[in-house]
């Protein structure tokens, strides 16, 4: 592969990576269902917050496709990932 072509390919990949990273970090979010005083509420969480929750096993997808928080609002989250 010629160096100029390589530089173009690398630049395109860096642009793609940076675009995905920025979109995920700044704009992407998902609604998760959480319990609060015996009723379910929907919390909109950004992707970095979802990463943090996923890392401690704090969110799970049920059979209907809904994403649920595994602990109630105000409760202490799990200490570590369930796996």
């Amino acid at each position: 592969m010629k160096n100029q072509v390589k530089i173009i390919v690398v630049s395109l990949f860096i642009l793609l990576g940076a675009a995905l990273l920025s979109y995920g970090a700044l704009f992407h979010s998902a609604g998760i269902s959480a319990k609060q005083k015996d009723e379910n509420i929907i919390l909109q969480k950004s992707e970095p917050a979802l990463i943090k929750l996923a890392s401690i096993g704090g969110i799970k997808r049920d059979e209907s496709g809904k994403i649920n928080q595994t602990f109630a609002v105000g409760e202490k989250p799990p200490a570590t990932c369930a796996t």
Binding site: V10, F13, I14, L16, G17, A18, A19, L20, L21, S22, Y23, G24, A25, H28, A30, E47, P48, L50, I51, A54, S55, I59, K60, R61, G65, I67
Partner: peptide, 24 residues
């Protein structure tokens, strides 16, 4: 993160974008 997001059926933009950038 990619595996956990896969289980949640959410596309992991941050993890994939980061790995592409670092990988390249």
């Amino acid at each position: 993160v990619i595996a956990q997001f896969g289980a949640l059926h959410i596309f992991p933009f941050v993890a994939v974008g980061f790995l592409i950038t670092i990988g390249v």
